[in-house]
Design a protein around this nucleic acid. Sequence first.
DNA 1: CAAACTGTATTAAAACGATTAGTACAGTTG
DNA 2: CAACTGTACTAATCGTTTTAATACAGTTTG
Lengths: 143, 143
Amino acid sequence: MILLDYKDRRPIYEQIVEKLSDLMVRGVLTENTPLPSVRSLAADLSINPNTVQRAYIELERQGYIYSLKGKGSFVAGMDHITKQKQADILAAFGSAVEKARAAGVTADDLCSEVRRLYAAGNQAQKAVSDHLTISNYGGNADD
Amino acid sequence: MILLDYKDRRPIYEQIVEKLSDLMVRGVLTENTPLPSVRSLAADLSINPNTVQRAYIELERQGYIYSLKGKGSFVAGMDHITKQKQADILAAFGSAVEKARAAGVTADDLCSEVRRLYAAGNQAQKAVSDHLTISNYGGNADD
DNA sequence: CAAACTGTATTAAAACGATTAGTACAGTTG
DNA sequence: CAACTGTACTAATCGTTTTAATACAGTTTG
């Protein structure tokens, strides 16, 4: 399940959006997989259902999920998701690059850093994905 | 002068910290240059002096400036500033890289993006620095 | 010295967003 | 029908940010 970070200054609903969309991109949540219901996720996280709903509304607005009244909320098509998430990520990446460039960091330095992080990250990857693993809900939207 | 972005969800004092430290790293504000007084910057930005003071307190805490009672606030030593800012920037960069890696973006893709942004950014750089230019206050801390 | 600046400190109120609480309605499922 | 689902709405609460209004201490300049 998701873990909330109360040290994070971002609002809870935004953390939920980020963590769930991460799980989709990582392939843990696949197309048409049902998400936990608004009320059950709220209970699991010990937060108000309204907060979860707000996160789901945002996820739907961004194209990560689709919701059916009376049925539930489900992971949207992976093609949309991948495009969306990678666009988000590249935008954030571009912003970080721009700041580094303005601060006098060279392109070579950044590329070295990229490769260093990739080398180091591959070993930590297993632990990270374990930590983010979401319980399997099973079932599909079109049951 | 600085421009505040009210669409930005971050608090005003934090925007001030970021923009002023940016100007220092870019070399627009150099060592011992006096910053606008708490009251005058507040007037320029049409905000409360307390908000500016909070930004200055934070800038001092992070080592970007030093303040002398009755005299004013001044840009700190560039060696401290550069180290501080580059550490901040590399941390943000590393976070962006990690997310991209998790989303399946290759290291080569990121490096290509870096070089593309550097090539494109060099032409936009003049416009950016123009936009961020701060009026010249003249004078030094040790007058 | 006096006026006009500086930074700094403090307390209270106001404003704003995030979150909670409670309720309600509509659709689905068994 | 009972128990789920998403959705909608209003009101209250809470924390942070910002404002407001002073006040005090040090510096500078006429």
